[in-house]
């Protein structure tokens, strides 16, 4: 029972982590809570569904297709709704703009698909493997492996490549990076693309796992992923991963051992407690006041 719940928690948590990464990367560079991020994740789930059921492609191709689509969508959102505000407004105006995009995108999908829940079609045979302590389904295995692969890939990219270095530079000091000749707009655009692709992957896998997608699924998932990002220490990539997994595990355990009716409150209660004890999050660095 315990191990099974832990596995369920890890599976859920790794999807939170995938979404949380987008929040944390964008926040790290432009200090914006990208509220439309949850909707990008929702779009990913729907595009994946479309590719699987209408185009009839293999699920992995559908995953890649959804990621590609959301990359473009994420860059488009940044270009239309955030870039015009950059540098001439308070962060709060950008936040309201993000909220506007979020409302726009979820309504758009509700208009296209209706507000009802849609089921993912049977895309593959689900096997169950017995690993002694636990039984793991092939679906869970795929989710865990794909998430791990994407996160390791992201970490390598951020640490080893030129564009990764540029991203890290921008998150340290946007203005100085600009003065050093980094094309800041391109780096920001790229960050949105990567974050959106990860969210799309999360969306497709959640759609598969829970076998349900609906236009307003982005709101709660987005809030929880943002909570995960804050929990881990916003702006920190490993923090988002740890925060996401922690939150997923705690939520599943809370439901299993406490009560399912308080499911949505658990994540937030944990978050508030952690922040009160450790205001900078688990992995965040304490920034001393500059005077």
């Amino acid at each position: 029972m315990f191990w099974e719940q832990l596995l369920n928690g890890l599976t859920l948590g790794s999807t939170y982590a995938l979404i949380a990464l987008g929040y944390t990367m964008v926040y790290g560079i432009i200090q914006l809570i990208n509220f439309a991020h949850g909707e990008i994740y929702m779009f990913g789930a729907f595009v994946g569904l479309f590719l699987v059921s209408v185009a009839g492609v293999n699920i992995f191709i559908a995953l890649l297709g959804a990621m590609a689509f959301c990359m473009v969508l994420g860059m488009l959102v940044e270009k239309v709704a955030y870039r015009p505000l950059r540098g001439k407004s308070t962060r709060l105006s950008a936040l309201i703009s993000a909220i506007g995009v979020s409302i726009f995108l979820s309504t758009l999908m509700a208009l296209i698909r209706g507000t009802n829940t849609t089921r993912y079609p049977e895309v593959m045979q689900i096997h169950t493997y017995n690993l002694g302590l636990i039984e793991i389904s092939s679906l869970q295995l795929i989710i865990l492996l794909v998430s791990a692969f994407l996160m390791v890939g992201l970490q390598m990219m951020v640490q080893r490549t030129t564009i990764g270095k540029a991203m890290r530079a921008c998150s340290q000091d946007l203005e100085a990076s600009y003065l050093m000749g980094i094309n800041v707009n391109r780096v920001i655009s790229f960050t949105f693309a990567i974050g959106s692709a990860l969210a799309a992957a999360g969306g497709v896998m959640v759609g598969l796992y829970y076998n349900a997608v609906w236009p307003y699924m982005g709101m709660m998932a987005g809030l929880k992923a943002f909570a995960a990002a804050v929990l881990g220490g916003i702006g920190s990539i490993p923090g988002a991963m740890i925060g996401g997994v922690t939150l997923g595990v705690l939520e599943i355990f809370g439901v299993a051992y406490l009560s399912s009716s308080y499911k949505d409150a658990i994540a937030f209660a944990v978050l508030i407690l952690v922040l009160i004890i450790r205001p900078q999050g688990i992995m965040g660095q304490k920034i001393s006041k500059k005077v």
Partner: peptide
């Protein structure tokens, strides 16, 4: 306890508080 938190951390706590109240 929460107003020591800065900016967006506070935002997150207020969101969380409202969600907890709703679930309550």
């Amino acid at each position: 306890p929460t107003l020591r938190l800065e900016g967006d951390y506070l935002a997150m706590v207020t969101i969380g508080f409202a969600e907890i109240i709703k679930v309550f």
